[in-house]
Amino acid sequence: AAEEHPAEIWCDSLKLGNLQLVSKLKNPSDSCSVDVSSVWWEVTGCKESCIITACEFTVSLWKSLDNWQWRKVYTWHFTEIPVLQIVPLLDACNLVCVALGHLEIREIRLLFCSDDDECLKQSLVKSGNIKAVLGLRQKRLVCSNGTLHDHRVDLMTFSESGRSKEKQTLMSPEETILAFAEIQGMQDALLGTTLTSNIVIWNLKTGQLLKKMQIGNSYQASICHKAYSDMGLLFVVLSHPHGKEIESMGTPIFRLIAINPKTALSVDVRPYSLPQGHTGRFLDGEVKDNLAAAVLTSGTVAVWDLFLGHCTALLLPNSDGNWSFVKWSDTDSCLLAGQKNGSVFVYSY
């Protein structure tokens, strides 16, 4: 049998791979689940890593108990516009942002608790036609909004309590930004990808647009996930939600390219494809350090080790249904995988 179906045997050994199920959170809400993330929060006087889940009209914070059990401690409610995604502010404590909208983001709200009475609060941070948003370290948030003629890129910095914010405008590349990505280890640099296959770099301290670099037509509508600066080059992880299948290498879900920011020249380094026998396009995903995870249109989650260059784990749809969103926990090597019915599974990697 192994000789007849070598690809299937290999895929079987990949299922779960390095992932081990450690716990499950079940949101009893009737509404559709949309996102999950991890966040630092001070609960009963102690700062700890919590899980935050989003349904269409609620966002809930879960505190860890013993033995990988979770208890819901806070729920913020929204009435008019549904939640689209959680926007974590990476190293912030007691602060998290959410993006609300229908198909496109219409509002970004900051969620926090008041110092005095621990009442749940939310404040409107930005409204309008928001195209891309990313939470950064040092309680900063960057978002691009507006159309071609009134395009703006804003950087906001929040105070510890979330009550006030400083706002700075970054120079616009004068085209639609699809996504932002931090450059690991360079807190004053920010990278973005645009609708017309440009990669742009900003200096966040000065607001300057440092470079706009064309990366070719094969990268149409690429989403940047993470960048690393090394030896004078930028290594950028991209996904291609509209990418075409390349027969010789299967379906590349992520791709690593190297760019020389001084000359704007770039080369392909490596595609990250699905194992033989698996198909699907990129739906949702996240890159943390050397690990990339993606939910595919097939309902499967796939994990790649960017250094090893191949898929190291597959989570096939289970009896509850397809996977619909996936995130890495910020504090430990855990994968948070969620389904529309409100189930979030925590896997250690």
């Binding site: 360079m186 640099a189 647009l209 440092l210 470079k211 030896m231 080059l233 001084k262 000359t263 080369v267």
Partner: peptide, 23 residues
Amino acid sequence: CSESDLGPISLNWFEELTSEAPP
């Protein structure tokens, strides 16, 4: 990746681009 593919590489690219870009 080599200089033949990517052109001259600078370790201080961020500082250099900042000084060259419009304020």
